[in-house]
């Protein structure tokens, strides 16, 4: 066991020696692999954040009913009771125009604009949830409310959550497809790098075989070489994705705040990071394996 370990360490040492013998080559290879892996990894990062966002956001579709600006509180109360009694309506929440004003003033960017206006620009509003929240039923309810007097505008909220859901499913498929595609690309990159390596070290391969080396012995340093390249590329990809997450965090938070949502963009979590590095190393090993199998068969 100790001997076995010593021989593997020896192969790792040899692989590292070869990697550091051509630093520019190694660096460029790592970059190529890193960029290839960063695409699906970045997609997974965005997807993870979007999933988190969708989870923390109420997925219950709502209808917002806005009163006309000139409607007084009495009319609003009338509409409220009418909404409350309406078949299919589950809950009605009143949002007074004063509350809306206070809430909007909390936003420092908007405050100056609002204070420049002569009066309260916001109308009274209701947030309505339905007993049956299928899109068709919701659409019907909204259409009905639009007919009512002094109702200025009816909006189906949270329809976007459904869209987001569908979008996320699509996103997951896209990330998987991208992962498979670029995973195959990674194998191809490692394949040709190892082929070059095998040609560079063909004297060593030939001599080793003449001295009684098994295919396993001949392969070993090359497999570690491919594995280390893959792993290094995975680390590069991880760094790229983390840097992108940090860089996008502030502007994206700004953007989603406009939709009344909060999002702090996070890099890859521990599980995804582990998967990334594991896959990168595994694919590097696989690429090297395929390359050497072909090389040794020819030789």
């Amino acid at each position: 066991m100790r001997v076995w370990l010593a021989h593997h360490l020896e192969a790792v040492r040899l692989a590292l020696r070869r990697l550091s013998a051509a630093p520019l080559n190694t660096l460029l290879s790592l970059l190529a692999i890193g960029v290839a892996l960063a695409l699906p990894a970045g997609g997974q990062m965005l997807l993870g954040n979007a999933l988190h966002l969708a989870d923390t956001t109420s997925a219950v579709p709502q209808i917002s009913v806005f009163m006309a600006a000139n409607a007084d509180r009495r009319m609003a109360t009338e509409i409220e009771s009418r909404l409350g009694k309406y078949g299919g309506v589950k809950q009605v929440q009143f949002v007074s125009r004063e509350d809306t004003l206070t809430r909007m003033k909390a936003n420092p960017g908007l405050r100056d604009v609002i204070e420049a206006l002569p009066g309260n620009p916001f109308p009274d509003a209701f947030v309505v949830t339905a007993t049956d929240d299928r899109p068709e039923t919701m659409e019907q309810l909204a259409a009905e409310f639009r007919q009512w007097p002094k109702v200025e505008h009816v909006q189906l909220d949270s329809a976007w959550v459904r869209r987001l859901d569908a979008l996320l499913k699509l996103g997951r498929t896209a990330v998987m497809l991208l992962g498979a595609l670029l995973g195959a690309g990674l194998i191809a990159i490692i394949f040709s790098i190892i082929r070059m390596q095998a040609l560079t070290h063909r004297a060593e391969i030939e001599v080793s075989q003449l001295l009684g080396a098994t295919d396993g012995f001949v392969r070993r340093p090359f497999l570690y070489y491919g594995c280390l390249l893959g792993l290094g590329g995975g680390v590069v990809a991880w760094l790229l994705v983390s840097a992108a997450a940090l860089w996008l965090r502030a502007p994206l938070s700004e953007l989603v705040r406009l939709y009344d949502l909060t999002l702090v963009l996070e890099g890859l979590d521990a599980r995804d990071s582990g998967l990334l590095l594991g896959f990168a190393a595994g694919l590097g090993w696989l690429g090297a394996m395929i390359s050497l199998r072909q090389h040794l068969r020819q030789g």
Partner: peptide, 9 residues
């Protein structure tokens, strides 16, 4: 090299 190949300690 031959000893590495043969798996000597």
């Amino acid at each position: 090299l031959p000893l590495s190949i043969a798996g000597f300690p």
